[in-house]
Design a protein around this nucleic acid. Structure first.
Lengths: 343, 343
DNA sequence: ACCTGCTATGGGAGCGCTCCCGAATTGATC
DNA sequence: GATCAATTCGGGAGCGCTCCCATAGCAGGT
């Protein structure tokens, strides 16, 4: 393994000059620069990032903390972040901080304090107050994806607005008995969930449907949505004609449940989601599209700015979703069509 | 930020002694050790991993290269790896190497050569020959999860065996027209796919059903499985009575397709998968369970051993799957029950 | 009394880089 | 011809740690 000293010797210059030539900063004549570059290439020189970091205090590495990676939203955000970082030549260190786990505590107490990164991106973390404190105490820029606090920069979907629009879409189609699926005090995303539930509630109230408003708890996964929907839909008398799902996975679970109960979608039941999940098309799900990949990229962009100028004030990017109309929603029908159940 | 020199001063010892006390190696009296520990605690001392790495050559960091993170198998393996690393106090830097992408090339050409890790885990990479070369050229231990080469240690499901068992399960139930869903020359997992297809083929041949063997191409995703199954099942005359799916996502796609076509599962069509995906239970899918999370942990274990003793010969861990019988498979029926299609 | 071997500690080189600073050269300006 | 700014380069300190080596005290054996 050759170091910069070897490169310098090979090029017939000093270490300092070699360093300057390679980093592109400071005065170096074009000719020497070329000579150094060639020497480096010849020797297959790869700078030691460790030595660089030690000397400069910059790690060229970004930390990403998230509670899950095996869920669509998180995985997509992660890929977005990764792509944006690779483009900039930066490494990505992942910290998987499952809520309530003992490792989560260790991550905040010990892993993060090592500060092996120039900045941190927290994705859907919903950090406790003390967790947020310890992140900020690191003295490194922090950007959140999803979140409602004002202490870091945030890029997030406008949850309340989205849920409002989703509800309005159903109201415009003539529905009145519109249920919300996926709110829960037990869920892991208190902020997102409550905002979406709020949006739904508000729209219902605005339309004079406050009385009709109802919500059923469900974790934000497909199987949970399925189970919750089965329960919600099983009683034909109280059954809603439309469902606002907290996210697409829940919505798809509801569609599958409806099919199994013999309820035609959208004739007997309209379902709208939020996400535009990779399965949405397959289930013809009408939904509001958010693109987590872009959110990841935006977070990186924000973080870069903040690393460059740490005095920058926190920024909040509240993204507007776009309605994707497919065929899981339709006008209210009086006859409430039902087909035979396909067990 | 206080360094080890501060700790040493505070404890009234030399840097060397402080270092020894903290690292636990070398001769230090219990009393001094305590004193140093207390001093460190008091000052909130956090060692600079950079300085440590520079000095020792060890990074306390593991690199993970994978082509996707937004797929069940990969995400699960990643979580398994992460958990195992956190337990050992090691960091994880992620490299997302999408096949065919230009960033993939950059990862191998430039990111990996920085060697910011003590070892590498390649998950389902299916590396090109030159990619494998450049990974091995780093001089760091490499462990693969999924793969068929002998140049690194590997932990992988016994694909051929699993597919054979799956096929045999259906044969034992009396099926003869058994189709394989999910093989494809265009897919990204040539090794896995071909092994599973081979296993299927072999079982069919062993049972004298070589003539009946047929396979339909499908990428290894739920929507792709759905599309492929729709095509495969639409012609009632050529339709198989059972399907061996290359993985659970494809299997579930097939089940959904069957339902929509009005084919009762398992009365009219048996479907068996491989994975035990998180959705498998919800679709009552009979499948062979593999636990990617454990594979990740096993890979870490293997890697640790190899880091400790780099002369160790590559090890191949071929995992046996366990059959999980649910109700997507059943005995062949002569009447080929069909229900009405639920559109 | 002396040597050996173990324990306990400190001194200081070295890991590979960056970057401050000073020296040297050039060229332009007065 | 002197002054000054702009450029080009090398020397070397320093980033924060580990670890080799030297030193020294203190058994215990001969």
């Amino acid at each position: 393994m050759s170091g910069i000293a070897d490169v310098a010797r090979q090029a017939g210059v000093s270490k300092s000059t070699a360093s300057r030539a390679l980093s592109g900063s400071g005065y170096v004549s074009q000719e020497t620069r070329d000579r150094v570059t060639r020497a480096a290439e010849m020797l297959g020189y790869v700078p030691s990032t460790n030595a660089q970091s030690l000397s400069t205090g910059r790690t060229q590495n970004i930390g990403v903390v998230m509670p899950y990676v095996n869920r669509w939203f998180f995985a997509e955000v992660l890929e977005g972040i990764q792509a944006a970082l690779l483009e900039r030549g930066l490494d990505l260190t992942l910290y998987d901080a499952k809520p309530g786990s003992d490792t989560r505590e260790r991550i905040f107490e010990s892993f993060l304090t090592r500060k092996r990164f120039d900045g941190l991106i927290a994705v859907g973390l919903e950090p406790e107050e003390n967790e947020l404190d310890s992140m900020l105490a690191l003295g490194k820029p922090v950007v959140s994806v999803v979140g409602n606090h004002e202490r870091t920069s945030v890029v997030t979907l406008d949850d309340a607005l989205t849920a409002r629009r989703a509800t309005e879409h159903l109201i415009e189609l003539g529905h009145r008995r519109i249920a919300f699926l996926g709110a829960g005090s037990r869920t892991r995303w208190p902020h997102v969930e409550s905002s979406r539930l709020d949006g739904y509630m508000q729209s219902m109230a605005d339309a004079g449907l406050a009385e009709e408003a109802t919500h059923t708890e469900s974790e934000l996964t497909l199987p949970a949505g399925y189970d919750a929907a089965v329960e919600l839909l099983s009683d034909a008398r109280t059954r809603p004609t439309a469902i606002v799902a907290a996210c697409d996975e829940v919505a798809i679970g509801a569609i599958i449940a409806a099919r199994r109960l013999g309820l035609h979608v959208p004739a007997a039941l309209s379902v709208i989601g939020i996400d535009d999940h990779e399965f949405a098309e397959m289930f013809a799900l009408t939904t509001f599209r958010q693109v987590p990949r872009e959110q990841g990229a935006a977070a990186v962009e924000l973080l870069m700015r903040q690393i460059q100028d740490p005095t920058l004030a926190p920024v909040i990017q509240r993204l507007k979703p776009r309605l994707i109309v497919r065929s899981s929603t339709g006008p209210l029908r009086s006859d409430r069509a039902t087909a035979d159940a396909t067990v």
